[in-house]
Every structure is written in C-alpha cells, then in structure tokens.
Amino acid sequence: MLLAASVIQSFAQQVVSGVASGAIYASLALALVLIYRAMDVANFAQGEMAMFATFVAYTLITQFHLPYLLAFVLTILLAFAGGVIVERAFVRPFEGAPVLTLVIVTLALFSIVNGLAGLIWGYVFKTFDSPFPARSVQVGGVFVGIQDLGVIAVTLVVLAVVFSFFRYTRLGLAMRAAALYPESSRLLGVRTSRMLALGWGLAAAVGAVSGMMVAPIVFLDPNMMQPVLLFAFAAAVLGGIESPVGSVIGGVIVGVLLALVGTYLPGGQNLRIPFGLIVIVAVLLFRPAGLFGRREMKRV
C-alpha cells in the first residue's frame, strides 16, 4: 500500500512538472506558430532569440540590479523591439522568397544570434535565479513545486494576454487577417508588411518568456534553447502548425510525455531529444495536420 502510494505520488509529481515544462514549450511553440501563420516558414532562430533575451534579463538583474519583475517586463518589451528590428532588417529583404531561402535566412540568424551571445556573455554556464521559491506545497495529497506552479501561472497569463490581443483588438484582428489572407487584407488597407514585423515582435516577446522560464531549470548558456526549440517544434507539429491553441495543448502533451520518458525509461534523460524527433516524425507521417490543424499541409 505504502509503495503504491509513493508510486502514485511520484507519478503525479512527474505529471505536474511535465505540465510546467510543457508550458515553456508551449510559449515557444506559440511564437513559432505566430510566424508560421504569417509567412509559412518555421523560424529556426526563435529559440536563439529567446536565449538572447534571457541573457538581457540576466544582465538587467545582475549588472543593473533591477528587481526581477521589472527586468522581466523590460526584457519582454526589448524582445518585442528586437523581433521587429530583426524582421525589418534581415527578413523583409527576402519577403516572398522560396521556402528554402527563408529556412536558410533563419538558420543564418540562428548562427548570428548564437555567436553574438557567446561573444558578449561567453559559454560558461550561468545560474539564472528563479523568481519562485524552491519549496513545495501539498495539493490534494501530492507535493508540487512552487516553481512548477509559478511557471504554469506565468504561461497562462502570457497566453491569456496574447489570445485576448488577437481576439479583442483591432490590431490583433488585422494581424490575423494579414497572416491568413494577405492579398484581401491589403485591399482593405492593411499594411501587411508592417503586420509581419509586429508578428515577429510578438513572437520574440512570447519566446522571451519561455527563455526566462527555462533558464532557472537548465542553467543559462548560449545553447540552452536548442532542445527547447526541438520540443517546441514537436509541440507545434503535434498541435497542428497552423493552430495557436493546438500549439499550446501540444506543448503540454509533449512536456508530460517527456517527463515520463525521462523518469521511467532506462537512460531516459539521453532519450528525451530522440523522443522529440520520434514525435515530430510520427505526427507528420500519421496525422500531418496535427491534432487541431485545419488545412491540408500539402503544398505543390
């Protein structure tokens, strides 16, 4: 009996922490989906941009001694501006280019941002303090880390803000229209190119949150976001890469599955990334539109 209880207890803990990591993947996946919907390309630099933003937050906290909350908000604003600038400077010249060109452009950005972060902050692992206490609380007989609950809460707030923006504001509506129907939108006077830049800004801001949430868990270094990007890809593909809601649900599913794989399979920690690969390939083969995708993904 006691053994069974402890098994259930540990299982429940794994699920909760899986949901928390899933929330992080969900944020980055949402960022990827925002850009995918607007320009049909996966932004391979999304994770690196998030990593860079997290280093900015780190600097604001450790060098400028700002309180965490202020640094957090400031970083999101800076990330937004950074995303807009990156789009205007590096992506806009390639508007309408073939997919391969755009993939290479985002990979180039990947290299540049990664190298720049290494140049400025170096490759030594840094601890990024969590805003949440390391204690656990008991919820319904299960000990749950406050850290995990905090990550989930922050992500929920971010998602609520993003979804309300798209649902209830004029600008959000125009961005949705521009992403889905660029030509019709231009005929209605929407400056679609500008909407694209805003989309990059928004994606960068959402991504920055994922970076700041993951850094306390994995240590801060220029390569920290690469696995997260992979899992975010898996989440986006699982949810249907056109669907923002799907990407969030996909993120949670991927997070929980990874937590269970990491805990219960022998050598599980090493198998997390290959598992992400398996999820991506399996979804693309057996349900290419994902769980919530609407459109046929085949493009000729």
Partner: peptide
Amino acid sequence: IPALRLRGIYLALATFALALAVTPVLNN
C-alpha cells in the same frame, strides 16, 4: 522513405530534430 511524405519546411523540421538527436543517442 518517411521523408517522402514531408516536404519543404516539414522535412527541414524533421531533419533538424535528427541533427539534434545524434549526440544524445551516441552518449546513451
């Protein structure tokens, strides 16, 4: 063979995941 069903950006995603998976598999 599975790549046959993936084109453009999806193939890029899957092979990206493949690239990341090599090192942990070898370590495992």
